[in-house]
């Protein structure tokens, strides 16, 4: 069989719903796309720990402090799971981190923004993690089985993040006017990034990750599902979504909304977001500061050998 014939047979198997394991043969393009896609996801988990990290010391109660700390530990744990997949696909961890801190690889748009108040912590945990669970839920059926299995585990853990975030928001909405305003202002800051979260409405036939079965649902479908799940929940607690055009069109059976500026999204994920440089320089600093730990661990092994 020629290489092209093998690729065609592989694509056919994927279309039939067969799954690929790490040790199976796979086309170079499939491997390259998996690495890029999962690495971006892993980077997002790692970078996603940073905005919330700032709030551990400012959490309003011991319970909240423990829960925020646990969430951050989960996010870093998710990054570990996903980086293992990327390593198994052939990209070494040193190269992954080097590419990340030098801006050669991406992480999700929502982690390029600063946080201003405890309101942001609640909105992030509830609505950003909510958006992530919608896309990760679809990824459970990815053609790459190790990724699908990892998504099942991650979604299970994210359930706590969502519920904790929702609890933070609900608690504030039952509180003083100032507390309610904190949540409303945070929602207004996060709505645009949330509408960008699932990416531009690329036609499914042009989305290569869909073609390879790495993703299972088109971007726009994920955004529609997100709106169907969350708009009512947001509105019924008295929060106002800052988009006058947002409404459900029952004739078309879909949500209409103000089209996000997709050029802006591109600029943000390529390192030009309001907090991109600060976050990356902090990650670079931690990488440098922890270099001695990695050296010590590897050094011990060298002595023992």
């Amino acid at each position: 069989m020629t290489y092209e014939e093998r690729v065609e047979a592989f694509k056919k198997r994927i279309k039939e719903g067969h799954k690929v394991e790490a040790t199976d043969w796979m086309p170079d393009e499939y491997r390259a796309r998996l690495i890029k896609f999962i690495e971006m996801h892993a980077n997002s988990e790692l970078m996603g720990a940073l905005p919330e990290r700032d709030w551990i010391l400012r959490a309003p109660s011991l319970h909240r402090k423990l829960a925020v700390t646990a969430k951050i530990q989960d996010e870093v744990g998710h990054a570990q799971l996903l980086y293992r997949l990327v390593e198994d696909l052939g990209k070494p961890r040193e190269k992954i981190f080097d590419d990340l801190v030098n801006g050669r690889t991406k992480f999700h748009n929502v982690f390029h923004y600063p946080t201003y108040s405890w309101g942001d912590v609640g909105i992030i945990a509830w609505l950003v993690d909510g958006a992530a669970v919608i896309s990760q839920g679809a990824l459970q059926r990815s053609s790459y089985a190790p990724y699908g299995r990892t998504m099942r585990r991650i979604c299970w853990e994210e359930a706590f993040h969502l519920k904790h975030g929702e609890d933070i928001v609900l608690t504030a909405m039952m509180g003083t006017e100032k507390q309610k305003r904190l949540m409303q202002e945070a929602l207004e800051r996060w709505w645009e990034p949330l509408m960008m979260f699932h990416g531009p409405p690329t036609p499914p036939e042009k989305d290569k990750d869909l073609e390879w079965g790495i993703k299972t649902k088109p971007n726009e479908q994920l955004r529609q599902e997100y709106l169907s799940t969350y708009v009512r929940k947001i509105q019924e607690i008295g929060l106002k979504i800052p988009d006058p055009k947002l409404k459900y069109d029952s004739d078309k059976g879909r949500w209409t909304y103000t089209e996000p500026d997709w050029d802006k999204l591109y600029a943000i994920v390529t390192g030009n977001g309001p907090a991109s440089k600060e976050r990356l320089s902090f990650r670079r600093l931690s990488l440098e500061e922890t270099a001695w730990v990695r050296r010590a661990i590897l050094g011990e092994r060298a002595q023992a050998a």
Binding site: G77, Q80, R84, P146, T150, I297, E300, A304
Partner: peptide, 18 residues
């Protein structure tokens, strides 16, 4: 899943944490 570690003890700690 899997972990990467230099030795058995570290592997156990990472596996517990993850």
């Amino acid at each position: 899943g899997s972990v990467v570690a230099p030795d058995r003890e570290r592997a156990l700690e990472y596996a517990r944490d993850i």
